[in-house]
Computed example of a mutant assay.
Amino acid sequence: MSSNADSAANAGEARHYRQPGWFTRKVANRAVALVNGLGLSVWGSRMLEVRGRSSGQIRRVPVNLLTLDGRQYLVSARGHGQWVRNVRAADGELALVLGRRRSSYQAVELTGPEQVPVLRAYLVKWKAEVGAFFEGVGPESSDEELARIAPRHPVFALTPLR
Rank of each mutant, 00 (worst) to 15 (best):
S104P: 01
S104D: 15
E114N: 01
A89G: 14
Q106G: 14
L38S: 05
S3A: 02
V75N: 00
P154Q: 02
Q19D: 05
N64M: 13
P151R: 00
R59I: 14
V35Y: 07
R60A: 15
P117F: 04
K127N: 05
A147S: 11
A121V: 00
R78D: 01
A77K: 14
S3G: 03
N36Q: 07
L38C: 14
L98I: 14
F23N: 06
M47I: 15
W43Y: 08
V124Q: 12
D143E: 12
A150Q: 10
G112N: 04
A11E: 10
D91N: 15
R120C: 02
S55G: 15
N64S: 10
N4S: 05
R101A: 05
A11Y: 09
S2H: 00
A77E: 03
P62D: 13
V87C: 02
L38D: 12
R102L: 15
R152Q: 08
S104F: 13
N64P: 01
W83V: 02
L146W: 12
N36I: 01
E144Q: 15
I149N: 12
Q57Y: 09
S142C: 06
W126K: 09
R71E: 09
V50A: 04
R71L: 01
A31P: 06
Y17I: 00
S142P: 03
L94S: 12
L40F: 15
A150D: 08
Q115C: 10
A31T: 14
G37R: 07
L38A: 15
Q106V: 01
W43C: 08
E144W: 08
E13N: 04
W83D: 05
R85A: 10
P139C: 10
T111Q: 05
A11W: 04
V84A: 13
R101I: 11
N86Y: 12
W83Q: 01
P154F: 07
D69Q: 03
V137K: 07
G21C: 11
W83G: 06
D143C: 12
R51D: 11
V63S: 03
V75T: 02
R71C: 06
A157H: 00
G56E: 14
I58F: 12
Q82P: 07
S141E: 06
E144M: 10
V32D: 06
R78P: 04
R162A: 12
Q115L: 04
P139N: 07
E129L: 07
A28G: 00
V137Q: 10
G39S: 13
F156N: 06
A107I: 05
V137I: 14
E145P: 13
L38T: 09
V61L: 09
T159E: 09
G21W: 04
R59C: 12
S141I: 08
T159K: 03
R88D: 14
V87W: 00
V116I: 09
A132E: 02
S41Q: 14
E135Q: 11
Y73Q: 03
L158N: 02
R148Q: 09
G44W: 15
L34V: 13
G52N: 15
H153G: 03
M47W: 11
L68E: 02
V137A: 06
R30F: 06
E129A: 11
L40G: 10
A31N: 04
